[in-house]
Amino acid sequence: MTVCVGIAVNDCIVFAADSASSLVRTNPATGASEIINVYANGDKVFNLLKGHPICAMTCGMGNIGTASIATLVKELRRRLSSAEQGDWFVNPEAYTVEEIATKARRFLFEERYAALQPPPPAPHSFEFWVGGYSSDFDAGHEVWKVSIINGVCEAPVRELEGGFGWFAGGQPNAIVRLLLGYDQNLPQALTTAGMADAGVSATMGVIRAHSEVGIVMPTMPTQDAIDLAEFLVETTKRFVRFLPGADTVGGETDVAVVTKYEGFKWIRRKYFYPAALNPLETDHA
Rank of each mutant, 00 (worst) to 15 (best):
M57W: 00
N47H: 12
K44Y: 00
L179S: 10
V258Q: 04
Y113A: 07
I35Y: 03
W266I: 01
M61K: 02
W88G: 08
I7H: 01
G205D: 11
S81Y: 05
G170V: 05
V233Y: 01
F242T: 13
I100C: 07
A8R: 02
E159C: 14
L76E: 03
A115L: 12
A193D: 15
Y261K: 12
D247M: 07
V146D: 08
G263F: 07
P92Q: 10
H284E: 15
D136W: 09
I215T: 12
V97D: 00
A139I: 04
P28W: 13
T235I: 09
Y261Q: 13
V213S: 13
T192P: 00
P221T: 03
F89Y: 15
K260A: 11
K237C: 06
V258K: 03
W129A: 06
T30S: 14
V257D: 06
N63V: 00
K74Y: 07
V157D: 11
R158I: 12
A16K: 04
A104C: 11
T30V: 06
L160D: 09
M195L: 15
F46R: 03
G170W: 03
I13D: 00
A285S: 15
C4A: 13
L186K: 09
M217A: 15
F231S: 10
G181E: 11
C12Y: 08
A104V: 01
E281T: 10
G214Y: 12
F89K: 01
R177A: 09
F15T: 07
A225I: 03
N185K: 14
A168D: 05
V255W: 00
T236H: 04
D197E: 15
A285T: 05
I267A: 00
A209Q: 15
D247Y: 02
I149Y: 09
V73L: 00
R79I: 01
S19V: 06
G194R: 05
A139G: 11
F272S: 12
N10F: 06
P28G: 12
W144E: 02
E84F: 08
T203E: 14
M220A: 08
I100W: 05
Y182I: 02
F126P: 00
